[in-house]
């Protein structure tokens, strides 16, 4: 199988901190690959290494078959980069930003203008084409960022947290654009803190924590890997909650969680369901809801890392301020 992106043993340190502690990646051409992890996990550092912005201390990587250090100039001709740090010029208009990039990529003035207009059109920014970017809303800004990284028709696109801070509608718009690009054969490496985003877009996900890939697979594989199913029981009478917790704990063999009026417990064996029904029946507890479902990526993350994706301590965010 062809791989648009390959990385082997990437290590990158910032002073005493290790941002990447040996990362291996293999992204098949024409797919969306998700790097999922909390702030400071090393996602951005990995993207910056692959996009030729930063050199790894150890290991090597290729994009489109070219080494990101030795053949950096060739890699840059293949890639597009959108991230919170790779930004457009706020003082220029949307059209001027795209014209600038088109011209830098070697397009003639007329061609660069045409390409810019077409992208502004595709991304619903035609009306704002001649407004300074600093007047754009967050969603418009991200769309322009993405348009800017598409001027050169990249084969490999790096999207570093493309929807962080966007409202749900803008997020959905951006997801649709990414799906269209992939349909056109573009390979996408996406980093995100949002489990839903990885689940929605990525065919393969690598879960990153503390500079390492701690799990990898399709979203379904990852969910299955943690054994991950959750049994939810909601008694009709809140007074029965304590009894339900006791029964669920006994049946599943682990301590259940109580969220409002429901008891949830992680289970690895689907046969607990009939047992649970029998025990609840014997205890004469009427039940409003009883469900067994596959673990969400959030739960996968929790079981893999021991902490939730969103609650990583803020001081681990060293990627943007290397010491």
């Amino acid at each position: 199988m062809d791989h648009a992106i390959r990385a082997e043993g990437l290590v990158r340190r910032f002073g005493a901190t290790t941002a990447l502690a040996g990362v291996d990646l293999a992204v098949p051409t024409g797919t969306v690959f998700g790097l999922l992890g909390p702030n400071g996990a090393g996602k951005t550092t990995a993207v910056r290494v692959l996009a030729t912005l930063l050199r790894a201390d150890e290991g090597h990587a290729t994009v489109g078959g070219f080494d990101v250090v030795r053949d950096a100039h060739r890699v840059r001709q293949l890639i597009g980069l959108t991230g919170q740090y790779a930004s457009v010029d706020e003082t220029l208009t949307g059209a001027e930003n795209l014209l600038l990039i088109g011209r830098l990529l070697g397009l003639g003035r007329a061609d660069a203008k045409r390409r810019g207009r077409q992208l502004l059109d595709d991304f619903g920014l035609s009306d704002a084409a001649d407004r300074a970017v600093k007047t754009f809303s967050g969603g418009m800004r991200r769309r322009l960022d993405l348009a800017a990284s598409l001027v050169g028709r990249p084969q490999v696109l790096f999207l570093d947290e493309p929807t962080t801070g966007l409202d749900p509608r803008s997020r959905n718009d951006l997801w649709d654009i990414v799906r269209t690009l992939v349909a056109d054969g573009v390979t996408v490496l996406l980093t995100t803190q949002y489990l839903e985003e990885a689940d929605q877009l990525a065919g393969q996900i690598a879960v990153v924590d503390h500079g390492r890939v701690i799990a990898q697979g399709t979203p379904e594989e990852l969910k299955a890997k943690t054994g991950g199913q959750t049994l939810t029981v909601r008694p009709v009478d809140v007074a029965d909650l304590a009894t339900v917790v006791a029964i669920a704990g006994e049946v599943a063999g682990v301590t259940p969680d109580v969220a409002q009026t429901a008891v949830t417990v992680a289970v690895n064996d689907p046969r607990v369901l009939p047992v649970m029904v029998g025990r609840l029946d014997a205890a004469e507890i009427p039940v409003a809801e009883l469900a067994l479902r596959g673990a969400s990526l959030d739960e996968v993350f929790l079981s893999l890392t021991g902490h939730r994706a969103e609650d990583a301590p803020a001081d681990t965010d060293l990627e943007r301020t290397p010491a």
Binding site: D2, H3, A4, T29, T62, G64, G65, F66, D71, H73, R74, Q77, L78, D89, L92, E96, L100, R103, L104, G106, Q155
Partner: peptide
């Protein structure tokens, strides 16, 4: 194997000085 690129798309290895000057003028315009 690495991604196969058609010869027409094969990216150039490095940049000439003329191209660098052109980039400089474009960025000065900006």
């Amino acid at each position: 194997t690495a991604v196969t690129l058609s010869p027409a798309l094969a990216p150039a290895r490095r940049l000439g000085v003329t191209a660098g000057l052109r980039h400089t003028f474009t960025l000065a315009w900006r």
